[in-house]
Amino acid sequence: HNGKLCKLKGIAPLQLGKCNITGWLLGNPECDSLLPARSWSYIVETPNSENGACYPGDLIDYEELREQLSSVSSLERFEIFPKESSWPNHTFNGVTVSCSHRGKSSFYRNLLWLTKKGDSYPKLTNSYVNNKGKEVLVLWGVHHPSSSDEQQSLYSNGNAYVSVASSNYNRRFTPEIAARPKVRDQHGRMNYYWTLLEPGDTIIFEATGNLIAPWYAFALSRGFESGIITSNASMHECNTKCQTPQGAINSNLPFQNIHPVTIGECPKYVRSTKLRMVTGLRNIPSIQYRGLFGAIAGFIEGGWTGMIDGWYGYHHQNEQGSGYAADQKSTQNAINGITNKVNSVIEKMNTQFTAVGKEFNNLEKRMENLNKKVDDGFLDIWTYNAELLVLLENERTLDFHDLNVKNLYEKVKSQLKNNAKEIGNGCFEFYHKCDNECMESVRNGTYDYPKYSEESKLNREKIDGVKLESMGVYQILAIYSTVASSLVLLVSLGAISFWMCSNGSLQCRICI
């Protein structure tokens, strides 16, 4: 991952900044910058967002509201009850120091605090018919004063009620008058409520006091790749198909172990950190130390980045220098085999997901714990399936590479015959000098055995068991695999060879 928040398929997220979902939807004055928000790819909250409900109280069923919003990608904020005409018999300019803005008392931008007009609070009834052709999110509140005197001074009615009804919602609220500790300079409380109004449905408000009335509502448009994440990451000019709280993932790998919460087309989250597919040879310690064997393909974004291909070729060293050249036929066979294998694994496992966190309130801790156990169970199954699949494929890959290298080895052996000696570690020792032209003939299969047989015969008789390297004779190393990324691999195959001279070296080696 890149540690950044990015656009998702070209669409920017909605960053709530210092506000949370509650503050944004109710219209906390400190969240005025969010009022123009219309569309987004996903919503970003920060872990310690401080601006929620400015007048103390709870947004009821907040967790369910977050779940609903996680599939919303755009909205239209509109005046559901026009301020100047909807409440002619009531005062609608209630403000509070708890919702101060720029040093002055204020109130929510989407709600109206209705109080008595003169000395009376006549029963009010108002309704709205949803003609938007889509779901409408309606929010309101109920004020709970701290004393009967406060109730009387604001609403005149000691036994007030609030009723809200639609086809799918029907509740009646009565204020709970009680002494409470002071929070944000208030002994009173406000509880906030919401409902989704279906197209064509009607919502009716009736009250004799204590109503925090809707002013603006939201017509919602769903987008199934949307979601809500909690993150401290910063926004950058970048684009992605998959976003996590820790950063964007741009990967076609089937798995990731970065974060379980994802938005967009994302690899499946697994616990494993070692889900690797081999593309090189079986481990040979001396070669492995030099980083030549054991190439791997990573299938977990965050564990290993991208696929690494092994390729086969020849390396030689003689009086004229040293050089490398790919054996294109065996390399292409290996590439085709690995590509098919990788595609097979991805096809089997690479279903892209959006995974969002589930919200539970403080009273639902047991449910949250149960949900976590269920999620953990599914996660263990996914991890096991992934590891088992790759384990089985790896064994076949190792066998496949062994065969490829063996074929190259036999190709060289059949040409050199007794003009060189096998020394048991995949290397041959020449009994004759071999210049670049000679080396090329070994690589392309045109090695002239009779041409060098007499010199080889004489050297075999002279050496008589002495280690060949100390006599200045020449080696050919018969097994060799270097490691390159897919891009470098293609470039390498396009070149005939490249040279690395070893000044004054008397050794001649050709490596497979």
Rank of each mutant, 00 (worst) to 15 (best):
K268W: 02
C501H: 01
T273A: 14
K457E: 13
G465E: 10
T446R: 06
H259T: 13
C266H: 09
V390L: 12
L253K: 12
Y384L: 09
N250Q: 11
N407D: 08
A248W: 05
R290L: 01
E440H: 15
E237F: 11
G247D: 03
I479K: 10
C438M: 15
F360Q: 09
I335D: 04
F498A: 11
I284F: 08
K341M: 15
I300M: 13
A495K: 00
S231H: 06
K241Y: 11
Q256Y: 07
F428W: 01
L392C: 03
A325R: 01
S492Y: 01
N425M: 13
E437Q: 04
C427I: 01
G294S: 13
R460K: 13
S441N: 15
G306L: 04
N257D: 04
E368H: 09
R396V: 01
M307F: 02
G302Y: 08
A334F: 02
G306K: 09
V483I: 13
R443K: 15
C438Y: 09
A484V: 10
K348P: 04
A478V: 12
E437A: 14
N361K: 09
G303Y: 05
C434M: 06
K365H: 09
K467Y: 06
E410V: 05
M235T: 12
G303K: 05
V483R: 02
K329T: 11
H316T: 15
Y431P: 04
E265A: 12
Y480K: 06
E454H: 08
C427W: 11
I476M: 15
E237M: 05
V491A: 12
K406F: 04
K462Y: 12
V405C: 07
N459E: 07
N333P: 00
S486P: 02
G337V: 10
Q332D: 10
L506G: 01
S286L: 09
S486E: 02
F400P: 10
I381Y: 04
F299K: 01
V491I: 05
Y480C: 11
I263F: 03
G377D: 10
I346E: 02
R396A: 01
F353W: 12
H236V: 12
T279V: 13
N318H: 08
G504F: 03
G247T: 07
K358M: 09
A295C: 06
L275E: 08
G302N: 09
I300E: 02
L490S: 15
T240S: 14
Q507D: 03
A295S: 06
N361M: 06
H236I: 06
T262L: 03
K433V: 12
Y269C: 02
